[in-house]
């Protein structure tokens, strides 16, 4: 599947970063752009969802604590086929929230990855995304 996308899409991979902390968005965008990704940053949940539903992205980095609509709600809309049919993007949760194991497991089950931001640097994020 991953190889198919890579061969079918020779243009740079597009990343949507839904992140309300402006500087974190900036750091991630910088590192990803340098690594050849095309990055869009959205600062709140609702705008992030709208952007995601345009289906123009390969990867969505989704923070949980974002204004107007939480990342969990965004994820629910993205996983609802009646609202978002055939979402192509992989959704990676990027958060600093420490959910208890059950909550985290239920979020992880719907996402393609779960990252605690404080535990990685932007470059480490790039290398994680490259392995997707």
């Amino acid at each position: 599947m991953i190889d198919d996308t890579a061969t079918a899409n020779p243009t740079p991979k597009r990343v949507l970063c839904i992140e309300d902390e402006h500087f974190i968005g900036e750091l991630y965008a910088r590192a990803l752009t340098k690594a050849g990704y095309k990055v869009t940053v959205e600062l709140d949940g609702q705008k992030g969802l709208q952007a995601a539903q345009t289906n123009q992205f390969d990867i969505i980095l989704l923070d949980i604590m974002v204004p107007t609509m939480t990342g969990i709600e965004v994820l629910r809309h993205l996983r609802d086929p009646s609202e978002t049919p055939e979402l192509a993007a992989k959704v990676i949760i990027t958060t600093n929230l420490d959910e208890d194991k059950e909550t985290r497991a239920s979020i992880e089950a719907q996402a393609d990855g779960y990252i605690i931001k404080a535990e990685i640097t932007p470059k480490e994020l790039v290398s994680i995304l490259q392995k997707l």
Binding site: I24, L27, N96, T121
Partner: peptide, 13 residues
């Protein structure tokens, strides 16, 4: 963790 993420990011830059 939020400021820590930023610190680690900028130090890396």
């Amino acid at each position: 963790r939020t400021p820590l993420t930023l610190l680690r990011g900028y130090i890396e830059v």
